[in-house]
């Protein structure tokens, strides 16, 4: 797939991004290989206007059914722990009550595309996971051991999501996720 470019008059983004979708087949065992097989690249974009054009054609997260995920990652980073951009990284996880996913996802994506996190190249991508009881937002960064960066990301996340103060946020390294096989 060729690298996307902003069209005439469009507003370029600091980074190009790719949108991925995955859905777990009911009853199938979770594993890294089935996760990889289920991951579908939907589109790439390079400008604000291209993002909105794609977004208007995507089903909103709250309207997805079953065990589904949207992933928006910088172009060239596959949304997998094993990718070289992710293998020393981790993610902030925010668990959402049902009904909040679409609004929170839009807030998170706009903050990421607009470079509101102010952590340079650290952000890898964002994921919204639709599950039965709750939905889960995650923001992945490159360096799990960099506590200054991860704290800054947490503070910005809290601000842009505008969630109740008692919302629980957890940081998890991809290494730990791999060990406990928890996050497919």
């Amino acid at each position: 797939r060729p690298t996307p470019k902003p069209g005439p008059g469009e507003h370029p983004l600091q980074f190009n991004y790719a949108v991925w979708f995955s859905r777990k087949a009911p009853g199938k065992q979770s594993s890294a290989s089935s996760y990889n097989q289920n991951l579908k690249l939907i589109t790439t974009f390079a400008s604000v206007e291209q993002w909105w054009n794609h977004y208007s054609h995507l089903v909103r997260p709250s309207d997805l059914t079953g065990h589904s995920d949207y992933h928006i990652f910088k172009e060239g980073i596959r949304p997998m722990w094993e990718d070289s951009a992710n293998n020393k990284g981790g993610k902030w996880i925010v668990r959402l009550k049902k009904g909040l996913a679409s609004r929170c996802w839009e807030n998170l994506v706009l903050a990421m595309l607009g470079e509101q996190f102010m952590v340079g190249e650290e952000i890898c991508g964002a994921v919204i996971s639709i599950r039965y009881q709750e939905d889960i937002l995650a923001l992945w960064n490159r360096t799990a051991s960099d506590s200054v960066t991860t704290s800054r990301i947490r503070d910005t996340l809290k601000r842009v999501l505008n969630l109740p103060p008692n919302t629980i946020m957890e940081y998890k390294t991809h290494n730990d996720s791999m060990k406990d096989n928890s996050s497919f």
Binding site: G7, G9, E10, H11, P12, L13, Q14, V48, E49, W52, N53, S56, N107, L110, A111, L113, G114, E115, Q116, M118, G120, V160
Partner: peptide, 21 residues
Amino acid sequence: GSKIFYERSFLLQCRNSPLTK
């Protein structure tokens, strides 16, 4: 570091631009 920053309000304005189909 990053050079291209956009505020949320600006991104939302672009949603209604003629360039956004």
